[in-house]
């Protein structure tokens, strides 16, 4: 976040309580989830979330590469989050950077706490997340896509993992920040929930919130996650439900 003159800061919240894209504080951006778009991978998913476009592919359980990462009692979960060079308007320098390494790590750790990795000792479950277009909240979109892809790959796990970011704009707690809100807002709090147990498996924060704001933000985020959870399940149902086509129709 570079330094910006005060007059450059857009009005993030109108007097009527509407945000720059017309949403209310507790509204999500529109989400579309597709399960199984890639045939090569064992499981895959594509997510469009506001202006974010994210593809996830899951391979495995399979042989571990590099070998020394192999664990004798469980599968290792390796995650690679990557932003395409064209995913943002100023070209993103391709390849690993500290940010994508961190996101890969926190997403892999989120999945480690839900996947039944002990069922596949000495193997690797590889999760690839490619951000094709970014507009804030890509780690959440990537996690949602990867979670649907894991289910599509038939990997046993406690539950799907919905994720969403909550933030603070113009002094108010708001659900699912978009780019301008993320850049000019006061705080950003991405989180990922396991609905079955109610546990959070990812929680990060940038900026400042009071304890009261934090607890309000967590409540709002959990509600958001539940809405996203429903969409994730629907995407998987759509992919695997048989359409009741009679035998005669070809």
């Amino acid at each position: 976040m570079g330094s910006v003159g005060a007059k450059d800061v857009p009005v993030l919240l109108s007097p009527e309580g509407l945000r720059i894209d017309g949403r209310r504080l507790d509204e999500l951006r529109p989400i579309r989830i597709e399960a199984g778009p890639l045939h090569q991978a064992d499981g895959s998913a594509y997510v469009e979330w506001g202006a974010n476009k994210v593809m996830a592919a899951v391979y495995g359980p399979r042989e571990v590469h590099p070998r020394h990462l192999q664990q004798n009692n469980k599968a290792v979960i390796q995650c690679k989050y990557n932003m395409a060079a064209f995913s943002v308007d100023e070209r993103k320098r391709p390849g690993l950077d500290r940010r994508s390494q961190e996101i890969s790590k926190v997403i892999a750790e989120a999945f480690e706490s839900v996947v039944f990795a002990e069922e596949f000792p000495r193997t690797s479950i590889d999760v690839y997340i490619e951000v094709l277009q970014a507009n804030a909240g890509t780690r959440c979109a990537g996690l949602v896509a990867a979670s649907v892809a894991l289910a599509d790959a038939g990997i046993p796990m406690v539950d799907l993992v919905p994720a969403v970011a909550v933030g603070k704009i113009s002094g108010q707690i708001a659900l699912d920040l978009k780019k301008e809100e993320d850049n000019f807002g006061e705080a950003d709090l991405p989180m990922a929930l396991v609905p079955q147990s109610g546990r959070l498996v990812l929680l990060q924060m940038e900026g400042h919130m009071t304890p009261d704001e934090l607890s309000k933000a967590l409540d709002l985020g959990v509600e958001g996650c539940k809405a996203i959870y429903a969409k994730m399940k629907q995407a998987l149902r759509d992919r695997y439900t048989v359409d009741p086509l009679p035998a005669e129709a070809a």
């Binding site: 064992d42 495995g60 359980p61 599509d152 790959a153 038939g154 079955q196 695997y240």
Partner: peptide
């Protein structure tokens, strides 16, 4: 009892189990 995978519910007393529809 919860499902751990995507699949078809198939009770086989004395077990409740899920047959996978995908995966390796």
């Amino acid at each position: 009892v919860y499902s751990s995978i995507l699949g078809l519910l198939s009770p086989q007393p004395p077990f409740v189990q899920v047959i996978p529809l995908s995966g390796r």
